[in-house]
Design a protein around this nucleic acid. Structure first.
Lengths: 163, 163
DNA sequence: TGACAGTTGCAAATCGTTCGCATAAGCAAT
DNA sequence: ATTGCTTATGCGAACGATTTGCAACTGTCA
């Protein structure tokens, strides 16, 4: 079933769940599975949380809370900013999203389903590129171990300029 | 010349400059040189800035603005928090202090005179340990280069737990 | 379906940080 | 030293991002 909204985005209604724009069936299944896992983990799956989850699943950038709110309202206009903040925190605690705190400016978020990676931030444009280096990770663990520590998590950000 | 204050800390007065507690003569000379350099760089050396500089020079931890303010007031009680913030920003622009933005919580500061290093943050105690790895730095530059970037600066933080 | 505990929207509160303004004080030239 | 120009200061109010208290609402599970 398809609905066309006033703002020209396509909504797909599946049973009583609202997902934003055109999502593939496999993407929808992925969301459903995630909801089930979260429910099994004691989290209530509300209308607002579904909307927020679908926004996060679709995002391939790193939106801040306000941007998540803006996008979520396209799916469900009643969702408040406070709920967005609360939901993002809850999802973070469930390990479903990661909170990114780049220099200058508020927190930004990304789904945790992609494999671990670090970030390059373009100092001129604010664009974010993801990368990963096993070699660096190994060195980090070595250094921490030398100092008597285990790495719980780390943050590696390269603030760069296009050459 | 020595002064003993009510709060049991020793102040040293050198010409018209106030430095906190017992500082070695070489440490004082270092501060004087720094002041001269800053003055030559167009920055006015005020009573409050001298007090803040001396606090920073003495700190071997990574205090936040509020903590810098608390310590500065021991030297000169009239210094306001706003001035601490303004001075820290100015000093950062002059490359004299670095602003550290660890997860959860406000900015913390360190003097820039130590050679470049990264940080290990104890997730249980908040303690900060400094380390450096040329090997990691080299890898970072390589990765950025592969993606068409030059590293302007970077942030590497290992959030760790004592083993 | 009913009941309970978790969730929501709203507005107010909080936290760290910045800003406007009138006053005070560096610094360079005198 | 004194002057004059400009910048720095303290104060309190404003700020933006985030959190919270509360009364109404709604998943969930029996």
């Amino acid at each position: 079933m398809l609905l066309r909204t006033t703002c020209n985005s396509v909504l797909r209604v599946t049973s009583d769940r609202l997902y934003s724009r055109a999502m593939s069936n496999t993407a929808i299944k992925h969301l459903r599975d995630m909801e089930d896992a979260l429910r099994a983990d004691g989290m209530r799956i509300t209308r607002q949380r579904v909307a927020i989850l679908s926004v996060l699943a679709e995002a391939n950038d790193h939106p801040d809370a306000d941007e998540v709110h803006r996008r979520t309202k396209q799916v469900d206009p009643s969702v408040s900013l406070a709920t967005v903040y609360r939901t993002l925190s809850v999802l973070e605690n469930h390990g479903v999203v990661h909170r990114l705190t780049f220099e200058g400016g508020g927190a930004r978020f990304e789904t945790a389903d992609a494999p671990h990676h670090d970030h390059i931030i373009d100092v001129d444009t604010g664009a974010v590129v993801e990368f990963h280096s096993d070699k660096i990770e190994r060195l980090q663990a070595e250094i921490a171990a030398e100092l008597g520590y285990d790495v719980v998590h780390h943050k590696l950000e390269l603030y760069c300029r296009k050459r």
